[in-house]
């Protein structure tokens, strides 16, 4: 694999995470527990969508096959998507939405601080903008985790279930393959191994304040780094790509 191909796939992976999580959050529009929360979740969805646009556009440029960010978003099939399994997990209830966001935003908080130091100036610039947004996402998710964990018995139980249910998707956050290692030697990619402890400490502290237990480590699901997903992604793409696929000649 050439350096260009590696950088393309690495950038695509970052873009896919933002795109799919944004999609999941956008599904919640007009369904929030209070209007303020409807707006907050839409805000996060919009931040992620903006990030996805920037990253997919850059991925298309690196690839050099004249594919736009829309081509990459709307004309790629499931097995060529590299988003984390966690990002595609359903909005089972508000606790699951918050748990998913807490896990991801905590990870991104550390990831993008490191990526800002990347030798790739475009990735560095995108990371610099992203980190400001992620701080807010993390604050929002932490506040709600604590409120729900330390709220009523029902909210505590729901939050604990969500944490338990999604725990098995958190191993993937720190997974690296040959692409990462190659790009790491060139100062482009982030070494996620040292991030794991920081992530763990941060999650422990939030869950502790929320009076929630940290789940015991069980089997960690994996696959997305090779384009193998849960069944959920196919449905997301079927819906998202419907118009582009049904009317391939149309410009929107």
């Amino acid at each position: 694999m050439t350096k260009k191909e590696e950088l393309y796939l690495y950038t695509l992976r970052l873009g896919d995470n933002a795109l799919i999580l944004s999609h999941r959050l956008s599904q919640l529009c007009s369904k929030g527990p209070i209007l303020e929360e409807d707006l907050a979740l839409t805000n996060i969805a919009l931040d992620l969508l903006g990030r996805a646009q920037a990253l997919l556009k850059y991925a298309g440029e690196i690839e050099g096959k004249n594919r736009s960010e829309d081509d990459l978003a709307y004309r790629r099939e499931e097995k060529n998507y590299y988003n984390l399994l966690l990002t595609e997990q359903p909005n089972k209830d508000f606790a699951h939405v918050i748990a998913r966001q807490l896990f991801i935003s905590t990870f991104e908080f550390f990831l993008f601080q490191e990526l800002e130091k990347s030798a790739d100036t475009t990735l560095s610039a995108i990371a610099g903008k992203t980190i400001k947004e992620v701080k807010y996402h993390l604050q929002h998710a932490s506040d709600w985790t604590i409120r729900l964990g330390d709220g009523t018995k029902e909210s505590h139980d729901r939050m604990q279930s969500a944490i338990n249910d999604l725990w098995m998707y958190t191993g993937e956050l720190f997974e690296m393959n040959g692409i990462d290692l190659d790009l790491l030697t060139q100062g482009i990619a982030v070494d996620t191994i040292p991030l794991q402890k920081k992530w763990r400490d941060c999650i422990n502290s939030v869950l502790n304040e929320a009076t929630l237990f940290v789940p015991k480590d069980t089997y960690m699901q994996t696959g997305s780094i090779n384009g193998v997903h849960s069944e959920h992604l196919g449905h997301i793409l079927a819906e998202m790509q419907y118009l582009q696929r049904a009317y391939p000649d149309a410009k929107w």
Binding site: L19, H23, S26, Q27, C29, S30, L35, D38, L39, T42, N43, A45, L46, L49, G50, A52, Q53, L56, E69, D70, A73, Y74, E239, M240, Y242, L243, Q244, A250, W252
Partner: peptide, 30 residues
């Protein structure tokens, strides 16, 4: 009014269209 427009967010045909629609619905909520 967020509902009929929300009905198309997940099927918006481009990233730009989706972004504009999401922002618009957010305005309505605001």
């Amino acid at each position: 009014g967020m509902q009929p427009e929300g009905n198309w967010i997940t099927r918006a045909p481009s990233l730009r269209a989706k972004q504009i629609l999401l922002a618009k619905i957010q305005d309505e909520g605001g």
